[in-house]
Protein backbone atom coordinates (compact mmCIF):
# COMPACT_ATOMS: atom_id res chain seq x y z
CA UNK A 1 0.00 0.00 0.00
CA UNK A 2 1.30 3.33 -1.05
CA UNK A 3 0.30 5.12 2.14
CA UNK A 4 2.41 2.98 4.44
CA UNK A 5 5.98 4.05 4.95
CA UNK A 6 8.37 1.12 4.81
CA UNK A 7 10.81 2.52 7.31
CA UNK A 8 8.72 1.85 10.32
CA UNK A 9 5.58 1.73 12.31
CA UNK A 10 4.40 5.19 11.38
CA UNK A 11 1.60 5.35 8.86
CA UNK A 12 1.63 8.24 6.42
CA UNK A 13 -1.65 10.09 6.57
CA UNK A 14 -3.10 10.79 3.18
CA UNK A 15 -4.54 14.26 2.70
CA UNK A 16 -6.70 15.15 -0.26
CA UNK A 17 -6.93 18.81 -1.10
CA UNK A 18 -8.86 21.12 -3.39
CA UNK A 19 -6.23 23.29 -5.12
CA UNK A 20 -8.28 26.14 -6.57
CA UNK A 21 -7.08 28.46 -9.33
CA UNK A 22 -4.79 30.86 -7.47
CA UNK A 23 -2.81 28.07 -5.81
CA UNK A 24 -1.96 26.83 -9.30
CA UNK A 25 -0.86 30.24 -10.64
CA UNK A 26 -0.38 33.55 -8.83
CA UNK A 27 0.01 31.78 -5.47
CA UNK A 28 1.95 28.78 -6.73
CA UNK A 29 4.63 29.43 -4.12
CA UNK A 30 2.04 29.29 -1.41
CA UNK A 31 1.10 25.94 -2.92
CA UNK A 32 4.62 24.53 -2.94
CA UNK A 33 5.36 25.80 0.56
CA UNK A 34 2.16 24.14 1.77
CA UNK A 35 3.13 20.82 0.22
CA UNK A 36 6.55 20.97 1.84
CA UNK A 37 4.88 21.75 5.12
CA UNK A 38 2.47 18.85 4.78
CA UNK A 39 5.42 16.58 4.00
CA UNK A 40 7.10 17.77 7.17
CA UNK A 41 3.98 16.76 9.06
CA UNK A 42 4.28 13.26 7.66
CA UNK A 43 1.31 13.53 5.34
CA UNK A 44 0.96 12.56 1.75
CA UNK A 45 -0.93 15.12 -0.33
CA UNK A 46 -2.99 14.47 -3.40
CA UNK A 47 -5.14 16.95 -5.32
CA UNK A 48 -8.78 16.37 -6.12
CA UNK A 49 -8.69 14.79 -9.58
CA UNK A 50 -10.20 16.91 -12.40
CA UNK A 51 -11.28 19.77 -10.09
CA UNK A 52 -12.86 22.90 -11.53
CA UNK A 53 -13.01 26.53 -10.36
CA UNK A 54 -15.37 27.01 -7.40
CA UNK A 55 -16.90 30.06 -9.11
CA UNK A 56 -15.29 32.48 -6.64
CA UNK A 57 -17.03 35.85 -6.25
CA UNK A 58 -18.28 36.29 -9.84
CA UNK A 59 -20.51 33.19 -9.94
CA UNK A 60 -22.54 33.88 -6.82
CA UNK A 61 -22.56 37.61 -7.60
CA UNK A 62 -24.60 37.21 -10.74
CA UNK A 63 -26.01 33.66 -10.73
CA UNK A 64 -26.20 31.88 -7.35
CA UNK A 65 -27.41 28.58 -8.91
CA UNK A 66 -24.36 28.50 -11.15
CA UNK A 67 -22.18 29.01 -8.06
CA UNK A 68 -23.85 26.05 -6.37
CA UNK A 69 -23.35 23.72 -9.32
CA UNK A 70 -19.72 24.77 -9.97
CA UNK A 71 -18.77 24.14 -6.36
CA UNK A 72 -21.12 21.16 -6.21
CA UNK A 73 -19.33 19.34 -9.02
CA UNK A 74 -16.15 19.37 -6.93
CA UNK A 75 -17.71 17.78 -3.86
CA UNK A 76 -19.46 15.28 -6.10
CA UNK A 77 -16.07 14.41 -7.63
CA UNK A 78 -14.62 13.99 -4.14
CA UNK A 79 -17.47 11.69 -3.21
CA UNK A 80 -16.95 9.58 -6.31
CA UNK A 81 -13.21 9.43 -5.70
CA UNK A 82 -13.87 8.00 -2.25
CA UNK A 83 -12.46 11.02 -0.40
CA UNK A 84 -13.71 11.34 3.20
CA UNK A 85 -11.98 14.60 4.16
CA UNK A 86 -11.34 17.22 1.51
CA UNK A 87 -8.96 19.95 2.68
CA UNK A 88 -9.49 23.38 1.16
CA UNK A 89 -6.67 25.92 1.20
CA UNK A 90 -8.30 29.17 0.07
CA UNK A 91 -10.93 30.65 2.42
CA UNK A 92 -13.04 31.84 -0.49
CA UNK A 93 -13.07 28.39 -2.13
CA UNK A 94 -13.88 26.88 1.27
CA UNK A 95 -16.93 29.07 1.80
CA UNK A 96 -18.14 28.42 -1.74
CA UNK A 97 -17.80 24.65 -1.35
CA UNK A 98 -19.37 24.65 2.09
CA UNK A 99 -22.29 26.80 0.93
CA UNK A 100 -22.93 24.49 -2.02
CA UNK A 101 -22.80 21.46 0.28
CA UNK A 102 -25.44 23.03 2.55
CA UNK A 103 -27.72 23.90 -0.38
CA UNK A 104 -27.40 20.46 -1.98
CA UNK A 105 -28.25 18.80 1.32
CA UNK A 106 -31.42 20.83 1.81
CA UNK A 107 -32.65 21.68 -1.69
CA UNK A 108 -33.60 18.58 -3.71
CA UNK A 109 -34.22 20.59 -6.87
CA UNK A 110 -30.62 21.87 -6.87
CA UNK A 111 -29.31 18.37 -6.36
CA UNK A 112 -31.45 17.25 -9.31
CA UNK A 113 -29.90 20.01 -11.42
CA UNK A 114 -26.45 18.80 -10.41
CA UNK A 115 -27.42 15.26 -11.41
CA UNK A 116 -28.68 16.52 -14.74
CA UNK A 117 -25.36 18.19 -15.52
CA UNK A 118 -22.95 15.74 -13.89
CA UNK A 119 -24.84 12.45 -14.04
CA UNK A 120 -25.30 11.89 -10.34
CA UNK A 121 -26.68 13.46 -7.17
CA UNK A 122 -24.47 14.36 -4.25
CA UNK A 123 -25.21 12.05 -1.35
CA UNK A 124 -23.33 13.92 1.35
CA UNK A 125 -20.33 11.70 1.96
CA UNK A 126 -17.55 14.29 2.02
CA UNK A 127 -16.34 16.28 5.03
CA UNK A 128 -15.00 19.65 3.97
CA UNK A 129 -12.07 20.77 6.08
CA UNK A 130 -10.10 23.92 6.21
CA UNK A 131 -6.29 23.92 6.27
CA UNK A 132 -5.95 25.69 9.65
CA UNK A 133 -7.66 22.65 11.20
CA UNK A 134 -4.76 20.41 10.24
CA UNK A 135 -2.10 23.09 10.80
CA UNK A 136 -3.02 23.89 14.34
CA UNK A 137 -2.64 20.29 15.49
CA UNK A 138 1.02 20.26 14.79
CA UNK A 139 3.04 22.96 16.60
CA UNK A 140 5.29 20.33 18.21
CA UNK A 141 6.18 18.87 14.81
CA UNK A 142 7.22 22.29 13.58
CA UNK A 143 9.02 23.16 16.78
CA UNK A 144 11.30 20.16 16.31
CA UNK A 145 11.94 21.07 12.69
CA UNK A 146 13.12 24.64 13.33
CA UNK A 147 16.78 25.04 12.37
CA UNK A 148 16.67 28.73 11.55
CA UNK A 149 14.70 30.51 14.29
CA UNK A 150 13.13 33.63 12.82
CA UNK A 151 14.04 35.89 15.73
CA UNK A 152 13.50 39.55 14.92
CA UNK A 153 10.42 39.05 12.79
CA UNK A 154 7.49 40.82 14.40
CA UNK A 155 4.30 39.85 12.65
CA UNK A 156 0.61 40.50 12.85
CA UNK A 157 -1.70 37.63 11.98
CA UNK A 158 -4.05 38.67 9.21
CA UNK A 159 -7.01 36.32 8.90
CA UNK A 160 -8.99 38.40 6.43
CA UNK A 161 -12.72 38.22 6.09
CA UNK A 162 -14.25 34.89 5.15
CA UNK A 163 -12.01 32.89 7.43
CA UNK A 164 -13.28 34.74 10.47
CA UNK A 165 -17.03 35.09 10.10
CA UNK A 166 -19.31 33.23 12.54
CA UNK A 167 -19.87 29.54 12.04
CA UNK A 168 -23.56 29.86 11.19
CA UNK A 169 -22.57 31.87 8.11
CA UNK A 170 -19.48 30.09 6.81
CA UNK A 171 -19.62 26.65 8.40
CA UNK A 172 -16.28 27.18 10.08
CA UNK A 173 -15.28 28.73 13.38
CA UNK A 174 -11.77 30.14 13.60
CA UNK A 175 -11.86 30.83 17.34
CA UNK A 176 -10.68 27.43 18.59
CA UNK A 177 -7.71 27.69 16.19
CA UNK A 178 -6.68 31.31 16.71
CA UNK A 179 -4.54 30.65 19.77
CA UNK A 180 -3.02 27.54 18.25
CA UNK A 181 -2.10 29.37 15.06
CA UNK A 182 -0.48 32.09 17.12
CA UNK A 183 1.46 29.46 19.02
CA UNK A 184 2.48 27.85 15.76
CA UNK A 185 3.98 31.15 14.60
CA UNK A 186 5.62 31.63 17.99
CA UNK A 187 7.43 28.27 17.87
CA UNK A 188 9.18 29.58 14.75
CA UNK A 189 10.46 32.37 17.01
CA UNK A 190 8.34 34.99 15.27
CA UNK A 191 6.90 37.50 17.69
CA UNK A 192 3.15 38.07 17.24
CA UNK A 193 1.52 41.39 18.06
CA UNK A 194 -2.07 42.17 18.94
CA UNK A 195 -3.78 44.52 16.55
CA UNK A 196 -7.17 45.67 15.42
CA UNK A 197 -7.29 44.83 11.73
CA UNK A 198 -6.83 41.06 11.59
CA UNK A 199 -10.40 40.53 10.35
CA UNK A 200 -10.76 43.47 7.94
CA UNK A 201 -11.45 42.72 4.29
CA UNK A 202 -8.48 43.09 1.87
CA UNK A 203 -10.65 44.38 -0.98
CA UNK A 204 -10.87 41.10 -2.87
CA UNK A 205 -11.70 41.50 -6.57
CA UNK A 206 -12.13 45.27 -6.25
CA UNK A 207 -8.31 45.37 -6.33
CA UNK A 208 -8.68 44.97 -10.10
CA UNK A 209 -11.84 46.99 -10.76
CA UNK A 210 -11.55 49.74 -8.11
CA UNK A 211 -7.83 50.05 -7.41
CA UNK A 212 -8.08 53.47 -5.73
CA UNK A 213 -10.60 52.20 -3.24
CA UNK A 214 -8.52 49.15 -2.36
CA UNK A 215 -5.40 51.33 -2.06
CA UNK A 216 -7.18 53.03 0.81
CA UNK A 217 -8.26 49.78 2.42
CA UNK A 218 -4.77 48.28 2.24
CA UNK A 219 -3.15 51.48 3.51
CA UNK A 220 -5.36 51.35 6.56
CA UNK A 221 -4.46 47.74 7.28
CA UNK A 222 -0.76 48.47 6.79
CA UNK A 223 -0.96 51.56 8.92
CA UNK A 224 -2.46 49.62 11.81
CA UNK A 225 0.11 46.85 11.40
CA UNK A 226 2.91 49.43 11.53
CA UNK A 227 1.39 51.15 14.54
CA UNK A 228 1.30 47.80 16.35
CA UNK A 229 5.05 47.60 15.70
CA UNK A 230 5.03 44.88 13.05
CA UNK A 231 7.66 44.43 10.36
CA UNK A 232 5.66 41.85 8.44
CA UNK A 233 2.11 40.55 7.98
CA UNK A 234 1.25 36.85 8.12
CA UNK A 235 -1.59 35.74 5.83
CA UNK A 236 -3.60 32.59 5.29
CA UNK A 237 -5.34 33.34 2.01
CA UNK A 238 -3.71 33.55 -1.45
CA UNK A 239 -5.86 36.50 -2.51
CA UNK A 240 -5.22 38.52 0.66
CA UNK A 241 -1.48 37.98 0.21
CA UNK A 242 -1.51 39.42 -3.32
CA UNK A 243 -3.80 42.35 -2.49
CA UNK A 244 -1.86 43.38 0.61
CA UNK A 245 1.38 43.52 -1.38
CA UNK A 246 -0.09 44.87 -4.62
CA UNK A 247 -2.20 47.76 -3.36
CA UNK A 248 -1.67 50.64 -0.95
CA UNK A 249 0.05 53.92 -1.79
CA UNK A 250 0.49 56.11 1.22
CA UNK A 251 1.92 53.81 3.88
CA UNK A 252 5.33 52.18 3.51
CA UNK A 253 4.71 48.60 2.36
CA UNK A 254 5.25 45.55 4.53
CA UNK A 255 6.12 42.09 3.20
CA UNK A 256 3.26 39.62 3.58
CA UNK A 257 4.25 36.02 4.29
CA UNK A 258 2.16 32.91 4.02
CA UNK A 259 2.15 30.93 7.20
CA UNK A 260 3.64 27.94 5.36
CA UNK A 261 6.36 30.12 3.88
CA UNK A 262 7.52 31.08 7.38
CA UNK A 263 7.57 27.42 8.38
CA UNK A 264 9.63 26.76 5.26
CA UNK A 265 12.10 29.51 6.16
CA UNK A 266 12.44 28.38 9.77
CA UNK A 267 12.84 24.70 8.90
CA UNK A 268 14.85 25.43 5.73
CA UNK A 269 12.47 23.30 3.70
CA UNK A 270 13.46 22.58 0.09
CA UNK A 271 12.76 25.54 -2.21
CA UNK A 272 12.46 28.24 0.45
CA UNK A 273 15.15 30.39 -1.18
CA UNK A 274 12.97 30.68 -4.27
CA UNK A 275 9.77 31.69 -2.48
CA UNK A 276 11.18 34.87 -0.95
CA UNK A 277 12.13 36.12 -4.42
CA UNK A 278 8.55 36.06 -5.67
CA UNK A 279 7.02 38.74 -3.49
CA UNK A 280 5.72 42.01 -4.90
CA UNK A 281 7.12 43.59 -1.72
CA UNK A 282 10.61 42.12 -1.52
CA UNK A 283 11.14 40.67 1.97
CA UNK A 284 14.86 40.07 1.45
CA UNK A 285 16.09 43.41 2.83
CA UNK A 286 14.21 42.67 6.06
CA UNK A 287 15.34 39.05 6.23
CA UNK A 288 18.95 40.03 5.43
CA UNK A 289 19.01 42.73 8.09
CA UNK A 290 17.97 40.13 10.65
CA UNK A 291 20.45 37.57 9.29
CA UNK A 292 17.70 35.11 8.45
CA UNK A 293 18.65 34.28 4.86
Amino acid sequence: MSNVRNTGEKRLRRVHYYPGCSLMSSARDFGTSLFQMFRLMGTWVEPLEDWNCCGASPAHSVNPDYATLLAGRNILLAERQGIDDLYVVCPSCFVRLRTAEKILATDASMNAKLAKACGREYEGGVRLKFTPEILSDAPSVFEKAVVNPLAGLRGVLYFGCLLTRPEWITGFDIRPYEKKLKKLVNVLDVETLDWSHSKQCCGSHLAVTKPDMVDGMVDRIRDHARRAGANCIIAFCPLCQVNLELRGKEVEPLPVFYISELIGLAAKLPGHEGWVKKHLVDPRPLLNSLGLV
Partner: peptide, 10 residues
Protein backbone atom coordinates in the same frame (compact mmCIF):
# COMPACT_ATOMS: atom_id res chain seq x y z
CA UNK B 1 -19.48 47.29 -4.96
CA UNK B 2 -20.50 44.75 -2.31
CA UNK B 3 -17.62 42.26 -2.13
CA UNK B 4 -19.46 39.67 -0.08
CA UNK B 5 -17.03 39.79 2.85
CA UNK B 6 -19.94 39.05 5.24
CA UNK B 7 -19.00 41.84 7.69
CA UNK B 8 -22.58 43.17 7.57
CA UNK B 9 -24.30 39.88 8.26
CA UNK B 10 -21.85 39.22 11.09
Amino acid sequence: LCIGCYACVT
